[in-house]
């Protein structure tokens, strides 16, 4: 029972000041740490530079460093619950990892490739009717009507220009 493998996923933010070449090395290091603890690699998302939605503060040495962007990546793997505690310490002690998260997950891919359209309950009909009515209005306009609308807009613009001139005087 104790040696059963559990599927875990770790998401991590790498220091954005790392050169791009070293990012690959960092990921390889993490994979080595996993395999050295009896873990089995399943899948990964290679770290890409992305902005953060808020500033993350990480204490490195005696300094609080602030990060507004990072290389965000993830690795999915299988490991025993005993070994994951040890692996967590590795992530905690790595100063290039500004934040990480380890979660239990499933082997299957959980990212949805094609996102179905989403509507809040009760909004479906309202949106459809509104969309249709707008299209109908656009279709009904004849070239003469369009010209008339253009003329009225021009009039409005010229009248506002005159008002501004009067104010300046």
């Amino acid at each position: 029972m104790q040696n059963e493998l559990t599927v875990y996923e770790t998401g991590f933010h790498l220091n954005p000041s790392l050169p791009e070449g070293e990012v690959l090395g960092k990921v390889t290091d993490l994979k080595d740490h996993i395999s050295s603890r009896g873990g089995v690699f399943i899948s990964e998302g290679f770290p890409t530079l992305r902005p953060l939605t808020y500033t993350i503060v990480k204490r490195i040495g005696n300094e609080n460093k602030r990060f507004n962007q990072s290389y965000f990546g993830w690795i999915k793997f299988e490991m025993t619950p005993e070994a994951i505690v040890d692996f967590k310490k590795v992530l905690e002690n790595d100063n290039d990892i500004i934040r990480f998260l380890i979660i239990k997950t499933v082997r299957e891919d959980t990212m949805i490739s094609t996102r179905p359209e989403f509507r809040l309950p009760g909004e479906e009909k309202v949106e459809d009717e509104a969309g249709q009515s707008n299209e109908e209005e656009k279709e009904d306009l004849t070239p003469e009507e369009e010209a008339e609308i253009d003329r009225s807009i021009d009039d409005l613009v010229s009248s506002t220009d005159k008002e501004e001139e009067n104010k300046q005087e």
């Binding site: 998401g11 998302g45 993830w74 979660i103 499933v106 299957e108 959980t110 990212m111 949805i112 989403f118």
Partner: peptide
Amino acid sequence: IKNIDYKDIEI
């Protein structure tokens, strides 16, 4: 959809 992924921020 059986699992909701925290990385799938668009959803």
